[in-house]
Structure formats: structure tokens, C-alpha cells
Design a protein around this nucleic acid. Structure first.
Lengths: 339, 339
DNA sequence: GATTGGCACTCGGTTGGCGAGAGTGCTGGA
DNA sequence: TCCAGCACTCTCGCCAACCGAGTGCCAATC
């Protein structure tokens, strides 16, 4: 009993099931794939594969479908890389380069992945970690409310509201802004705290509280780690024919709305710059136990993974195609994004 | 045949159908509502209502369900306002006031509406129209790429990428930034164009092109009308039991992803500061023909509608409750947002 | 020993028929 | 104008029977 042929059978099962979405039996298998053996032989192999936990049958007298473990083996050893077509690549490049600002780049990347894979795309924004302060702006809004705008040297912009005690005037604000900006110029995050402290100390007593509050907000914004935003695209794809889940769409949609948890899942998965795949129950999120997640970090110039983009679909997904799409978009993204 | 009772019957049908989600017949109607007449009489009224196109029966020998026209009449004349409970109001207030920045306010408003109505919330961001320039920042990113950050005096922040010819240095950028900021100070949008023109003219020849490009991007960003972003929340609610649509979720999800069209729908609907309801086929979007949209603008201090928030659910929705929720959140939002 | 053909068995899905229940429209009487 | 009664219609759920696909096993063959 050839071990190699058994894997051929597994590959055939996965490919057929992904395509037809129906349990595949021994007869059809021999008809559609040139295995060179009879159905009976395939049946024996199938029995062995089932013994190994790689395939299962939904009920007696139905064909076999791959288990999570089966998909795992397929992805790790059996799947062949299927590069995108040249037109596809070109489309990615032009579409991304037309982006008008940072948010737009991210949104477009999401749309690309959703389109290419026919699934849901999840893109996680660059985080602020290790950012320096480029500029600080203070904008009074409603009474007693101040909008603090922080621009980092990586090009990220953060906004924060601040409740301020009454009795501040434009002049004070202008002075405060000028001093903070001067103090922060060229400093890294770690040093900004000290620089700001010196500024607040130098302020006249009546404005000290305000200055401290602003300093706090700014450093908090810079240090904030959870300030990673998530963008979802292509949720309509969930309703496409063939996206049927045993448990229905509900757990999936709910899981996708749990942005914080989702974020954790993505960051945990993405080990380095490569593409990672998490299959079915491998996902910690219960709602995603019928789905697989394909992620890739896109790195900054210094090799660190600053953000993640991914595609989520049923475990019965086209893994080679999805992996190729995610990887391609990630690569182009690394090129376009600010270092 | 009393006209008044006929409307009572319609109201009873709408309320019952919304609650039970099942066609309602004459017998049950007389049992659950104190109409003071017999089923037979109700049947006559029902026949009249059906004649008027206000109700319909899915098939013979089934109860009646309201038509779009029936819902319209219900909303316009029959529905009683049902104010939120005090705890609900308090929850809205605290939750919104905890927002940390502008994006957060919008996100929280969406979550509130989704939660309160159990439907999908759509929030449209403030547009930039008529904004003045507060500050301009230029951040070099990847080679040949410049990030232009525009902060308006309404507290909105916009980012744009700009491809620049090689051969610019930090000094030039700094000077450019300083000059533009000085030129824009205190000017309204209409005047900024002229101010910028003077700046570019005054620049040395070798930097004139760069200056012109920046000026263009900034004015474009300020003038941009389509720069209205949309945030969706609570899509998981679509999968809740009882959100069944004849045509399935697909057209709905697809319509929700068509952000541009959706935006058009919302802006068309929202006439002024009040709450507007669009029912079923009244929506121009075919995908939303089984849904109703409840919108409210939230206004700036000068009374203009700057943005819109809305709740989308099946035509068979709890109109009084949804209207109350949307209106309440809109009101609190107007209070918190920058003028 | 691996492979194969044959065969009995299992089981899910489909079809068709039947009865119950709900609701209507209509008619005649109060 | 309202109401009670009655015949009619249609959907839904249920049950039984049937069909087909697929399996597992066994004995024969290469």
C-alpha cells in the first residue's frame, strides 16, 4: 500500500471537495483524477486516511470530506503554489498606487483581497509603537473640550478629545502647542516624557494642570498599543452561494465584530513576514471554528511586522489561491507604505 | 363602516406582525386587541384595507401582513412615540462621553444604535465642506513619497499621499510648511486658494513645482465632497433569528458594501434635522427593498446637517423603538461633537 | 502482498399522499 | 352596520416508500 498514493488521494479529495462542495466518493475520485487504480483500492486508502483522522464521512454511505487535520496536511505538504496571473499582479499594483491617503491604502488592500479570494478580508492598521512625535496640534471644539491631534513621524495621525477646565484662551493654547512641539522635536518616544515634564514645570501655575493633561494624552496616544484598528471588507461574500456553514453565519459575523479578540488572533498567528494559515478549530475563536484564516504581515523597511492583512473563509477554501492573493497584496503593500 | 376602526385594525396588524413575525388573521386579532367587534367584522375591514393596498396576504387562507404602503401609513399617522427609558438615556450619555477621539465617537454611536435597535447601524462622517485650514504638516515617507496631513478647524484630519520629484530636502519641506501655514492662518476655504498662489509664486524656481503640487492636494482635500466616510456596525444582527429575508441576506449585505450608493441614499433621505424613514421599495437601492431605513442627521451648531446616522432593518421592524433610538443618539451626538 | 470485482448493507434525500389547522369570503339574519 | 355560520382553499407537518450513492468486506487475481 503506497504511502505516496494515499497522499495523492487526500489531495484529490481536498481539491474535489473544495470545488464541488460535496462529499466525494471513491468512484468519482477515480473518474476525475488519474490515480491509475480502481475504486476499491481507493476505498482501502480512504479507510487508512480516515483511520489517521485526515478525512471523515458526514454520515455512513456518504462520501468523505477532509478534516481540519487533513486540510492542515494539505496546506503544509500537498498544496502547490499557484502564482497570480500577470494581469492580476498589474491590477494590484495600479489599484494600490492610486490610493490617496493611508486609510485609502488600507481600504483598497482589503477590497483587493476580498475580490481576489471571494472571501472576507481583514486588515489591521499599523500600530504606533516606537513612533516619534512629528507635530502636535490643539484645536478647541465645543466648550470645555479640546481636540488633541498627534502626528507621528511614521505618518500616522491620532486624535484625542480632552476635557479641559474652563478658562483657557487661544493664546495659552498657542503657547502650549509651540512649547510642546519644540520640546518634542527630534526626540524618540522614550525621551519625550522627560522633555514634556520640563515644559509643564516651566508653565505658569494657572496653566500647569492643562499642560499636564495634554502631555498625558499625547504620551498615552503614542504609547497606546491597542490602538490598532481593523478594517473588514467583503462581508457580502459571506452570503454567496457556497458559503454555507453548519452553524449558520451568525457565529462568524459575531466573531468578526469582536474586533479586539480578532486582533489578538491575527497577531498571534502572524509569526513573521511569511503567510500563516490557521484552520478550523485551530482558531481560538469559537465562532471561527468552521473557517480558516490566511494571514500575512506586511513589514516595514526594518523587517518588523507592523501590520497584518488576512482573508477569512470556510475551511473548505481554495488555499493555494488565497495564499497567493494574500501574499501578493502584502508584498505590494510593503512597497507602497511609508517606511 | 367606521374609518377609525379600520385604522385601528391596521395598527393592530402591524404591531402583531412585527412582534410575532407571522401573518395575522382575524380571529387572533380580536383576541389580542380590544377592538370590540367580532372576527367577521374585522374581516370586512381587512378586505377594505387590502383593497386600499395597505395589507396583503402571502397566500390564500393565510393571515394578512402589512404592505410597504401600510407601514408608511402606520409610521406617518398611527405610530405612537415611545421615549427611551431613563437608564437607556443615561447609558447613551455616558458611553458617548467616554469617547477618546472623533473616530471613536462615531464608532460608539454606531454601536449604540446597533445595540438599541438590534439592527445594522450606519453612520456617515462629517464632511469637510466649508472647513478652514488649521494646520498643514508635511511628512516624508518612502522615497519619492510625501505624506500631506491637513487639519481643519472643525477638528477633522485628512491625509494624502503625494509623489514628489526626487531632490527635496528637509529644509525645503520645513520652509514650505511654514509658509503655507502662515498663508492659511485664519482664512476660509475660498480665500486659501489665492493665499497659496502667492506662496507658490514667491518660491524659488526649483521648488515651484513641489509647492504647486502641495497646494493642489491641500485645496483638493479641503474641497473634497465625496470624502464622507461610512461606518457600519452590528452586521452580526443580520444573522439573528427573525432577520429572515425573502431574497436572503445577500442583496442586503451587498447593498451595505456599496458605500457610495448607500451614502447617496442616506443624504437623499435626510431632509433636515428630523428623523426620516424610508420603507421597503421606497429605497432606491434594490438590495434594500425588503428593509427600512431610519435616519437622522445630527446637526452642527448652526443648524446645518453635517452628518447622518441611521439604522437599517427589515421592513417588519419596531418603528417607534427604532425611531426613538436613532433620534436620541443623534441628539446626544450633536451635543458632544465639535461645533 | 497489493489490487480488484462483486455483493450485501446502510442511510440520507425525495416523492406522494393524507389530515389537521388556520383563515377567508360569502350569505342571510338581526 | 354588524355578526354568526358555513363551505372552500391553501399551507404545513407527518409518514411511508423508494431510490441512489457509497461503504465495507471477502474472495479471486496479478
Amino acid at each position: 500500500m503506497s504511502e505516496e498514493r494515499r497522499l495523492d488521494v487526500l489531495r484529490a479529495i481536498v481539491e474535489d471537495y473544495v470545488r464541488t462542495r460535496e462529499p466525494v466518493g471513491s468512484r468519482i475520485l477515480t473518474e476525475r483524477h488519474k490515480l491509475g487504480v480502481s475504486p476499491a483500492t481507493v476505498r482501502n486508502d480512504m479507510a487508512a486516511l480516515e483511520e489517521a483522522g485526515l478525512i471523515a464521512q458526514p454520515h455512513t454511505s456518504a462520501g468523505r470530506i477532509p478534516t481540519d487535520k487533513g486540510y492542515r496536511l494539505f496546506v503544509d505538504q500537498l498544496a502547490e503554489v499557484r502564482p497570480l496571473t500577470v494581469p492580476q499582479k498589474r491590477a494590484i499594483e495600479t489599484f494600490l498606487s492610486e490610493a490617496v491617503d493611508l486609510d485609502d491604502v488600507v481600504a483598497r488592500a482589503g477590497r483587493l483581497i476580498a475580490q481576489l479570494t471571494g472571501q472576507v478580508a481583514v486588515v489591521q492598521y499599523p500600530s504606533l509603537r516606537r513612533s516619534g512625535l512629528r507635530h502636535l496640534e490643539l484645536v478647541p471644539t465645543a466648550e470645555g473640550r479640546l481636540l488633541v491631534v498627534v502626528i507621528t513621524d511614521t505618518g500616522r495621525v491620532e486624535q484625542r478629545f480632552l476635557d479641559v477646565p474652563v478658562g483657557m484662551d487661544d493664546g495659552t493654547l498657542g503657547e502650549l502647542r509651540a512649547r510642546f512641539n519644540a520640546a518634542a522635536a527630534g526626540h524618540r518616544l522614550t525621551e519625550i516624557g522627560h522633555a514634556f515634564a520640563r515644559v509643564t514645570e516651566a508653565m505658569p501655575d494657572e496653566h500647569r494642570a492643562l499642560a499636564t493633561a495634554v502631555a498625558e494624552v499625547v504620551t498615552a496616544a503614542l504609547a497606546e498599543e491597542s490602538e490598532e484598528r481593523i478594517v473588514l471588507t467583503g462581508q457580502a461574500n459571506l452570503a454567496r452561494t457556497g458559503m454555507r456553514f453548519e452553524q449558520g453565519l451568525r457565529p462568524v459575523l459575531e466573531a468578526l465584530e469582536e474586533q479586539v479578540v480578532l486582533l489578538g488572533l491575527l497577531t498571534d498567528m502572524t509569526d513573521d513576514a511569511g503567510v500563516a494559515v490557521s484552520i478550523g478549530h485551530e482558531n481560538r475563536l469559537a465562532g471561527l471554528s468552521e473557517t480558516s484564516v490566511v494571514t500575512s504581515g506586511y513589514g516595514s523597511s526594518d523587517g518588523d511586522t507592523v501590520a497584518i492583512l488576512s482573508s477569512i473563509g470556510p475551511t473548505r477554501m481554495d488555499y493555494p489561491g488565497t495564499i497567493a492573493a494574500v501574499r501578493a497584496v502584502a508584498r505590494y503593500l510593503s512597497r507602497v507604505l511609508p517606511s
